[in-house]
């Protein structure tokens, strides 16, 4: 039968398609090598040097650097700044997500852009704007001085600057999630007699809890690690207005490398924990979204 000996165009196209959607092994491995080298030099090396330099002078120097009073004070101040700014920004984020995600109103996209604003402002400028308001030369400076209130070069200024730079994190995580959730489940809860609060606590919040957690983790990492903005408002008073990053800077500039990296290693550990948490949360969220897809896929 002649027809069998003819090349089947379908088979031909298919075999070429397989070839044409993968690369030659040498191309593949070169690309992998380039990517791994790039990430290795730019990500692994910095991480490795932080820990190796921190422990260069031995464990006793490492522990000593962390237990030193100025270091302890810096750690404490960092925790205070994050402890105030993260919860406040979390409340803001949740509120903003409710207003923006569940309702339609005029100027909604403008509001979203404005919320993103702090991301695009240089940290140095973020600190500066508070100096221009609360500093001695600032708009409210004379009034504050007259009432013996100190914001700049003091803890309140550090908290304000931290709040500014971490302001969008939670809101930005939550808004798209809450929006994608729609309003049907909330409507169902209301028809079942739930109050607005009950609906929010029992239906809305549990549905976005992973996104919320992720936003809070990112917000916290940035709050504890912020350098530029805090540097401008802090005044660098040792043991009083130094956060961990500022303490690192001082130690480093005094050529106390091992202690500087010891404090830095704490922040690096925090960064690694943040990445780990992010991976877990993303995995959880993906699980949830495949469930969601499965549900709506069947529904349609």
């Amino acid at each position: 039968m002649a027809s069998i000996t003819l090349p089947n165009p379908g088979v031909l196209a298919a075999s070429r398609a397989v070839q044409a959607t993968t690369e030659q092994p040498w191309v593949r491995w070169s690309l992998i090598a380039i990517a791994v080298a790039f990430l290795g030099v730019f990500l692994f090396l910095p991480l490795a040097i932080v820990f190796s330099s921190a422990l260069e002078r031995g464990v006793s120097v490492y522990v000593g650097a962390l237990r030193e009073p100025d270091a302890m004070a810096a750690i404490k101040l960092t925790l205070i700044a994050a402890g105030i700014s993260v919860p406040l920004n979390m409340i803001f984020g949740i509120t903003a997500a409710w207003a923006i995600g569940k309702f339609d109103f005029l100027g909604k996209s403008l509001l979203i852009t404005l919320i993103d604003l702090p991301f695009s402002v240089s940290p140095v400028v973020s600190g500066l704007i508070y100096v221009l308001i609360f500093g001695l030369q600032g708009l409210l400076g004379p009034w504050l001085a007259a009432h013996d209130l100190k914001i700049i070069f003091a803890v309140p200024g550090i908290v304000l600057a931290t709040m500014f730079v971490t302001f969008p994190f939670v809101a930005r995580e939550l808004i798209p999630l809450v929006e994608a959730q729609g309003t049907e489940e909330e409507e169902a809860a209301l028809t079942l007699g739930a109050s607005g609060w009950q609906t929010f606590w029992r239906v809305t919040l549990p549905n976005v809890k992973w996104g919320l957690l992720y936003g809070v983790i990112l917000c916290n990492a940035r709050a504890m690690g912020e350098f530029g903005a805090v540097s401008v408002v802090s005044g660098h008073i040792r043991g009083r207005t130094n956060t961990m990053p500022l303490h690192i800077e001082i130690l480093y500039n005094e050529y106390q490398f091992a202690p500087a990296f010891a404090v830095a290693s704490l922040l690096a550990l925090l960064a690694l924990a943040t990445l780990l948490a992010k991976t877990v949360v993303e995995w959880k969220a993906r699980q949830q979204s495949t469930e969601l897809q499965r549900m709506s896929g069947e529904a349609l």
Partner: peptide, 24 residues
């Protein structure tokens, strides 16, 4: 591991990155 590490610059405080890169 590489995939997770890509976000390191978001998570690592800039001062830490600064002294690490300088030392390297």
């Amino acid at each position: 591991l590489f995939d997770s590490l890509v976000d390191l610059p978001f998570a690592l405080p800039t001062a830490v990155a600064g002294i690490a890169l300088t030392t390297i």
